[in-house]
C-alpha cells in the first residue's frame, strides 16, 4: 500500500510542478500570478456557482476518463474520446428529437442506449483495425475523433439545424425540457447518481470480475495471455467497445444535462483532457475520480478567469499540456527503469 501512496504523492508533486512552471511562464509574460491563482480558486470553488460548475465539468471528464482507464487496462490507448463523445451526443439528440412525444423515461433510456452504441461503434472500428491488422490505435482513434467532430458539425449545420437560430455558430433545435435530467447548471442528483453508479460498475468490472483480470493479463503480456487460452482479440474488442461506450454515454449526459441542444464544436477540450485525467489518476478508478474533480475545477476556472484578469482562456490550457507532458515523462521513466532492471544481467 505504501507503494500506492508513494505513486500518488509523486503524481501530486507533478501537478504542483506543472502549476509552478505555468506560473513561471505567465509571470515572464507579464501577468500577475497572484491574481490568476486567486481567479482559479474563485472560478473553481468560492465564486457563486463555481463549485457547481466544477462538478458539471467533472461529469464528462470522469465518464470519458474511465473509458481511457478501461482501454489502458488491456493495453490500448483510446484517445478518441472526443469523437465518441460527439457521436454519442448526436445519437441521443436524433432519438430525442425524433420521438418527442414518447414517454420521458423511455426516451431518455433509448437516447442513452443509442449514445452508448454510437460511442462503441466509433471505438470498435479502430479496435477492429488494431486487433485484426495491428494498426496503431492512437492514430486511428484520433482520426475517428475528427470524423466525429465533422459529423456533429454536419448535423448541427444541416439536417438538425435550428432554423430559427440566429447565432454565429450552428446549433441544433433544443430537446423538450421534460427530457432533461439537470437544469442548465449541469448538476442534479440524478446525474450524480448515474455517474457515481458508472464509476462503481467500472471499478467492479476491472477489479472484481474475471473479465477485468483477463484484461489486465492481456494488457501486460498478450503473448502469455494467448498461451493461457485467453481470446486476446475478443478481449481487445470488448475493451474498445466498453471504452467507447462510456464516452458515448458522456455525450448523452451532456445533452440531457447542461446542453439541451448541440452546438458545433461544443466542449472542445473535454475528450482530450479526459486522457490527462486518466493518466493523472494513475489509471485507477478512484484516482481518476479525484483527477476528474481537479480538472473539472480547472475547466470551470478557465471559463471564469476572463472575468477577473485579461488572461486569455488558452493560457490555462497550457497547464493541462504541462501536466500531460510531465505525466507522460513519468510514465516513460517508470517503464524505462523497470525495463532497465530486467535487462541487467544477473545470471552467470
Amino acid at each position: 500500500m505504501t507503494g500506492g501512496l508513494q505513486r500518488a504523492a509523486s503524481t501530486v508533486l507533478l501537478v504542483v510542478v506543472s502549476f509552478l512552471l505555468t506560473a513561471l511562464i505567465l509571470w515572464v509574460s507579464g501577468y500577475r500570478v497572484g491574481t490568476v491563482l486567486s481567479g482559479i480558486i474563485q472560478g473553481s470553488i468560492t465564486a457563486t456557482g463555481a463549485a457547481t460548475s466544477t462538478i458539471r465539468w467533472t461529469i464528462p471528464l470522469l465518464l470519458i476518463g474511465l473509458g481511457v482507464v478501461i482501454g489502458f487496462r488491456a493495453g490500448f490507448f483510446n484517445i478518441g474520446g472526443q469523437g465518441q463523445f460527439y457521436v454519442g451526443a448526436c445519437s441521443a439528440l436524433v432519438v430525442s428529437l425524433g420521438w418527442r412525444e414518447g414517454p420521458v423515461p423511455l426516451v431518455i433510456m433509448c437516447g442513452m442506449i443509442a449514445a452508448i452504441l454510437a460511442g462503441m461503434a466509433w471505438s470498435l472500428l479502430p479496435g477492429y483495425l488494431r486487433v485484426q491488422f495491428g494498426t496503431d490505435e492512437v492514430l486511428t482513434t484520433l482520426m475517428m475523433s475528427f470524423i466525429g467532430a465533422l459529423v456533429l458539425q454536419y448535423l448541427t449545420a444541416g439536417p438538425l439545424r435550428n432554423p430559427s437560430g440566429t447565432g454565429q455558430t450552428a446549433a441544433s433545435e433544443r430537446i423538450p425540457e421534460a427530457f432533461r435530467i439537470t437544469d442548465s447548471s449541469g448538476v442534479s442528483v440524478t446525474a450524480l447518481l448515474l455517474v457515481g453508479g458508472v464509476a462503481v460498475l467500472v471499478w467492479l468490472l476491472l477489479e472484481r470480475t474475471r473479465f477485468g483480470l483477463t484484461m489486465t493479463l492481456v494488457g501486460r503480456n498478450p503473448t502469455m495471455a494467448r498461451w493461457q487460452g485467453i481470446d486476446v482479440r475478443r478481449v481487445g474488442l470488448g475493451t474498445f467497445a466498453l471504452s467507447g461506450a462510456l464516452s458515448g454515454l458522456a455525450g448523452a449526459v451532456e445533452l440531457y444535462g447542461p446542453g439541451a441542444r448541440l452546438v458545433t464544436g461544443f466542449s472542445p477540450e473535454v475528450g482530450f483532457t479526459a486522457v490527462v485525467v486518466a493518466l493523472v489518476g494513475m489509471l485507477s478508478v478512484w484516482g481518476t475520480v479525484v483527477a476528474a474533480v481537479f480538472f473539472g475545477g480547472l475547466q470551470s476556472a478557465i471559463l471564469f478567469l476572463p472575468i477577473v484578469t485579461d488572461l486569455p482562456p488558452p493560457a490555462l490550457v497550457l497547464l493541462h499540456g504541462m501536466v500531460a507532458f510531465l505525466v507522460t515523462i513519468k510514465f516513460r521513466a517508470v517503464r524505462r527503469r523497470r525495463g532497465g532492471l530486467a535487462a541487467k544481467p544477473v545470471a552467470g
Binding site: T216, L217, R220, N221, T223, M224, A225, W227, R338, A342
Partner: peptide, 9 residues
C-alpha cells in the same frame, strides 16, 4: 519469461 508469465503482473 515471455510466454509463461506476465513479468509485470
Amino acid at each position: 519469461n515471455s510466454e509463461g508469465i506476465s513479468r509485470s503482473a
